[in-house]
Amino acid sequence: MSRAHTSGQKVAFLGATRGMGRALARQMAERGDALFLLGRDDEELARSASDLEARGAESVEHAHCDLEDPTSFGPALDAATEALGGLDTVVVTAGIFATQQALEEDSELLARLLRVDFTHSVLFCEQARRRLLAQGGGNLCVFSSVAGDRGRKPIVLYGASKAGLSRYLEGLDHRYRAEGLRVLTVKPGFVRTGMTAGLPEPPFAGDPEDVARSVLKAMDRGDAVVYAPAPWRAVMAVIRHLPRAVMRRVEF
């Protein structure tokens, strides 16, 4: 069997209400997973829970969890573990995005973005990692970004937070894979979501559904890293190898 049997998974999901998280949660629902949604807006969680139930999820419950507030992480994951009767997979798609210009102009926004996208994301993953390992392993699937692969002019600050996050996830994979923790770092390129609406669209832009498909496939295969949509793997391979002298000149 080239494909692990993964239907009927018990999934705790931070960020399922919008964008790529919504698309991924839907595909998990359609294959019959049991989902526990974490997020900060109860009404939004309830609406997404209804949607996922209507799409075939085995069960969908939700609890409050706010990436801005690390004290919410432990209780939220405990609630998920208890409601699901265990935990096979933890997914994190939540995070903040802001343009380079906005972040350069507003240091408060910058501090918040670095805190949420790096520090608190790591703190959340640590809580998830402990719980998964305590049960003998499982999947930890976290959305980082291609922005973390290289220092690039239009995304220096956002990219830095994602670079830190990607490196942390890489380390987790090296340290704990033998104990059964399968860490999947997702690196989306430009994806058409509410978050990117209105931004100029580069080539190889993709839709959240394409990303979700790639992520599920990668998770089933036990991959450590997945670029999505697929062409971004090649694009980033080139960009990672460009000399600094070139990176200083180009605008991407």
Binding site: T193, G198, L199, P200
Partner: peptide, 8 residues
């Protein structure tokens, strides 16, 4: 997220 299309 609510953003206005810049292209407008």
């Amino acid at each position: 997220m609510t953003k206005r299309s810049k292209r407008g």
